[in-house]
Design a protein around this nucleic acid. Structure first.
Lengths: 230, 230
DNA sequence: TATCTATACTACTCAGTTTAGTTTAGTTAT
DNA sequence: ATAACTAAACTAAACTGAGTAGTATAGATA
């Protein structure tokens, strides 16, 4: 996107072998880097890529604009670094809080907890919602960032479920645990997107427990005759 | 967003009852309106809201900038009109091409065709993908447009499936056709998002027929012993 | 006569650079 | 160890060159 040929800043030299002058090499302060990324997060998540200004990022970070450009090559570089950080640090493991005991027990209870974990990550957290919005909205202009997201969030989620369902495949009589896992995640993600991201709560309301109940009903083969509604 | 108090243009009066001055009122040419909307579509879908310039919209539409502002109040108004048009004209009925005969027959075949219709709408069409990207990406800044989308696309899809599954509820032994419909749509939409929108095809590949087969396997109660994979 | 075009304008914002001066931290000499 | 020195990280501010939304004007067109 930016196409200029300028002598690269010190920031780009990170990781390159230093020449001769090793006398008093101070690093760019990690505190500033963190502050800039924090400011960038606030701005990019709130305004999107195009509508975010580097002046405002610097102001929000409490740092001069020149410092921003000492730490990051340009707007695109800062954006890339931010998304990469968010994907790796914040939004990776939705399943870490699921204890092994639940996983070993009744599949209905385990799947309920997994579903609730997925929904909790997206239903309350406005920051998470804005992050997904940003990734989806910019996935056309930043395909590599989208792929990073897929590798670190989607793949992890689906692998986790695939593994779990594979273990239970016989007792649940599943023929394709991987596809079942995708259906499970997909139904939940779509619910989050429609209800919260697209503000569809009031237009097409549905209790989250109702969706989870149905989801588990369709995955676990025993079909009880009691019908909750409709 | 734009906060100026200007005497409204003729464009805003569209649909309002005209006052007294009906003396030789030529309308703003509908051809120009269409051309502007077409240009706006190209630009907004390709660049997003913030990165689209009104100069470029006018140029793409083959129309002067002043004409754009005669037909639409401002950038936001044009964007609103565009999304509204797209939602209503282009991306409303995914199910129109499903014939009644299929719907009356074997549920497995019917659901397969419905699933294929949903996937076809999103897997090939780059324009459709960009449209969804735009809606999702701007859903935070344009909540009303997001709601319009929900009302006209999500609700229609889910209602259609709810209705169909409600009729088959007994034979398929469904306890909550509406929730089942959501799961069905959700799994397909999530598949489109991950594979196409987020460029996950090569990272976590999955044949579309495999997903559809599993989906129908989970909805239709008869569980065949033959397993296609894994 | 009203819609259109072309063009230029206003007032502003933007990404990124530069300049001049301040702070900070590592090195060296005392 | 402490003080002096020095180079780099920083700040504030101005600046460049380009682009922005939206308006205004004068003339072409139908």
């Amino acid at each position: 996107m930016s196409s200029r040929s300028v002598i690269p800043f010190r920031a780009i030299l990170q990781g390159m072998e230093q020449p001769i002058i090793n006398r008093s090499i101070r690093q760019l302060s990690p505190e500033k880097t963190e502050a800039i990324l924090k400011g960038a997060m606030q701005e990019f998540l709130a305004c999107g890529y195009a509508a975010t200004s580097m002046d405002r990022v610097a102001a929000t970070a409490g740092v001069s604009k020149a410092t921003v450009y000492n730490h990051f090559q340009d707007k695109e570089g800062l954006f890339n670094a931010l998304i990469e950080q968010l994907v790796h640090k914040k939004f990776r493991s939705i399943f870490s809080s699921i204890d092994d005991q639940t996983l070993q027990g009744d599949p209905t209870a385990a799947l309920t907890q997994i579903a609730n974990n997925v929904l909790d990550s997206g239903l309350g957290d406005a920051q998470y919602l804005n992050f997904i919005r940003l990734i989806l909205g910019e996935s056309g202009r930043f395909p590599d960032l989208a792929r990073t997201f897929v590798r670190n969030v989607e793949v992890v989620s689906c692998q986790f479920l695939k593994q779990y369902l594979h273990e239970k495949a016989e007792s649940l009589r599943l023929i394709d645990p991987e596809a079942t896992g995708r259906i499970f995640i997909g139904a939940l993600v779509h619910y989050i997107i429609v209800q919260e991201m697209l503000h569809g709560k009031d237009i097409m309301p549905m209790e989250r427990d109702r969706l989870i109940t149905s989801l588990i009903f369709h995955i676990c083969p025993q079909r009880s005759p009691l019908s909750p509604s409709d």
